[in-house]
């Protein structure tokens, strides 16, 4: 098996985890920067909103984050175009069984295409998940001052207490959403 075929397979956690962890010192070496994604949402607002809202009046051009995020997007495109795994995503049998109740049977993509598609955007379920979810991501990351990458990876790597609190709360929120709220939304 050659190298390209090898990296086309999904990477196991003990390969991917340490590599992601190494992004923290890599960005510190590149320019003493905190590693995070969600602050770019703020930079985009600062760049696009002409209004003099204090939260958005700063020199967004000086922030490296947008370049980093463009790179992440491009990296995703590269992975999808050239390094894509030809096989369906391996989903735990328990999850497959649970999702079957809601009509999700297609595991060929990283996201369930039966839920996230254009026609679904006009249904109550679709708009709740896509628009509602997007709103919560945007609001929550600014309210918490960081997203999963900012708090759970960089913050914890720097042993910051607020990041530990944030990470624990992310996990609690995730458990509640996945187990209690999402089944209700899926059955809409």
């Amino acid at each position: 098996m050659n190298f390209i075929e090898l990296i086309k397979q999904p990477w196991p956690w003990y390969v991917a985890g340490p590599l992601i962890g190494l992004m923290v010192p890599a960005l510190l070496i590149l320019g003493d920067k905190n590693f995070g994604i969600s602050s770019s949402l703020r930079h985009i607002c600062a760049a696009c909103l002409p209004a003099k809202i204090p939260f958005f009046t700063y020199d967004w051009k000086k922030k490296y984050g947008i370049c980093f995020c463009r790179g992440v997007l491009l990296g995703g495109v590269i992975s999808a175009q050239f390094l894509a795994n030809p096989n369906p995503v391996i989903v735990s049998p328990n999850l497959a069984k649970a999702l079957q109740q809601y009509g999700i049977t297609d595991f060929h993509s990283l996201v369930p295409t039966q839920l996230f598609n254009w026609p679904n955007l006009l249904t109550l379920k679709g708009i709740t998940m896509m628009v509602g979810g997007g709103f919560l991501v945007g609001f929550g990351t600014r309210y918490a001052g960081g997203c999963t990458s900012g708090h759970a990876i960089t913050g914890l790597s720097k042993l910051q207490w607020p990041s530990l609190v944030a990470t624990i709360c992310f996990m609690i929120g995730g458990f509640v959403m996945a187990n209690l709220i999402l089944p209700f939304i899926l059955s809409l």
Binding site: M23, L30, L74, V77, S79
Partner: peptide, 11 residues
């Protein structure tokens, strides 16, 4: 760095 990280996240 972002491109590399994007590939990590997807793979």
């Amino acid at each position: 760095a972002g491109i590399v990280f994007g590939i990590f996240l997807v793979k």
